[in-house]
Design a protein around this nucleic acid. Structure first.
Lengths: 269, 269
DNA sequence: CAAATAGTGTCTCTAAGACAATATCAC
DNA sequence: GTGATATTGTCTTAGAGACACTATTTG
């Protein structure tokens, strides 16, 4: 038995107190709003998934999907597993937005959480019928910042959650948020959602994940709508097409039956 | 005793297996190389701090500074504390670059680590005389990527560590690295250093942290040298000055005795 | 004065934004 | 034909990069 082997045998990590580690995932998706005009294309809204908590703490409040990190898996595995458990869909992309580790962030004890942004494509979304009778809903997102005060509003039918956050600039040009009013959103999840939206919008600026919201083949107008919806901006079609040109390639298919001129379908390059 | 209170009393996290959580910090600093020409300004090199491991595992290998997360502190607190313990200096900035959670990344067991980039200013750097007799050194950094193969070389005097990594594009435009040859660097630290360099260079592109390498007052040429050194590029002074103009403000002080025309000192705006 | 850095002016080229004009389909 | 989107062209403007030139100090 060599020196290192001997050491590892006798080594014990149990002397140190350890936190529980979880993931929280901000799952984004575009919700299509049907148009009443047969000519007009349908508009879409950015929405995210929240789950109504069945037990304490924050009983009956809305919270992000997530769960405990299991031995043998990476934190990314854990995040993917949790999204699949909730939606029975594999997210197209996953981005870590940091470890939330305030000691008092969870009343149950020392629980730190790595938060992720993930994007679900335009396919049919179904909720798994879990035995835990969890209620899950998609909430339309609105997030407006004015003079470093931000208001996050999440709407799903009659339910409306409205949180207020203070923006804080930190080094390396990162912005973090402090909760002024959680708006009834569980734990520090309002803060996580705010950071997720910032990350999502930054990524959307250089087309990093806008493809993930769409099927494999799409029109340039659909792609433009994704960017506009996610970033809450408006751009001119001619300019969008010039900028996106290098990121896509043509197919030889066209849309049809849309009530107006057909559009060529493109694919991500 | 209300419902929620009752629940919290009886709640136990001990049923779940928990990982140990640590931080690893890539501490960067500019090392000034004195010029032999009295006229010429001194050049600088990007360097980072490594510590020689005194015990198993990876005994006598070089590793990043870091340590265990303590109860009651955030992961950022922990990172700052560890940097101060090693260098007795407060870093100017701190940026999280992700949680490294491969189950087999540490032979001692289930230990996950949140990595950080931090920058130390140009002040005198001293190593604390610890009773643990740890050996710490600044290593000059070279990091070249060619066709998604990267070579990381760290030099400190006679010591030369050379690691090979494979670049992997993931969603959201993030790049991660897989270690092909650790070059004798402990644990997965070569991977962490590669990611840190990527983050540092990205930040340097829009001047996010280049000020942190310098004292409060500096010349524009010094600032330009920081960006060039960190990003391993070369830019024309006239163009740099135009781009940086909005980020700095003049003082009424000048350099003197430099062997050539004095330069106005600026301050971050 | 020679060598080095400090600092300014300007030309070109590219990319972004604004806007105008034309094309094509469903009804 | 009408009303919607699809698609292309071009003008203007802002910014990056390249380069030339002048200024100022120390030894």
């Amino acid at each position: 038995m060599n020196d290192e082997h001997q050491f590892l045998e006798s080594y014990s990590l149990s002397d140190y107190e350890r936190p529980s580690v979880t993931t929280d995932i901000v799952v984004f998706r575009l919700r299509t709003e049907e148009s009443d005009n047969y000519r007009q294309d349908s508009k879409s809204k950015l929405s995210l998934l929240l789950i109504r908590r069945g037990g304490h703490p924050f009983k009956d409040c809305w919270a992000l999907p997530g769960g405990f990190l299991n031995p043998g898996e990476t934190i990314e595995d854990c995040a993917l597993r949790e999204v699949e458990e909730e939606t029975s869909l594999k997210p197209a992309s996953l981005l870590s937005i940091g470890l939330f580790s305030e000691p008092d962030r969870d009343p149950r004890g020392w629980i730190i959480s790595n938060a992720f942004v993930s994007v679900l494509g335009a396919e049919k979304v179904s909720f798994k019928a879990g035995d835990d009778a969890k209620e899950a809903k998609w909430f339309d997102v609105s997030f407006e910042t004015e003079n470093s005060d931000s208001v996050l509003t999440l709407c799903s039918g009659e339910i409306k959650l409205s949180a207020v956050l203070n923006e804080e600039k930190s080094s390396f040009g990162m912005t973090s948020y402090k909760i002024a009013d959680s708006g009834g959103i569980a734990f520090d999840h309002a803060k996580i959602i705010a950071k997720a939206l910032t990350a999502l919008r930054t990524a959307a600026r250089d087309f990093e994940m806008i493809f993930d919201f769409l099927p494999e083949k799409f029109t340039l107008t659909e792609l433009q709508n994704v960017q506009e919806t996610v970033m809450n901006i408006s751009v001119l079609p001619a300019n969008f097409r010039r900028k996106i040109a290098g990121y896509v390639e043509e197919t030889d298919e066209y849309t049809q039956g849309a009530g107006h001129r057909p559009a060529k379908l493109y694919r991500r390059k």
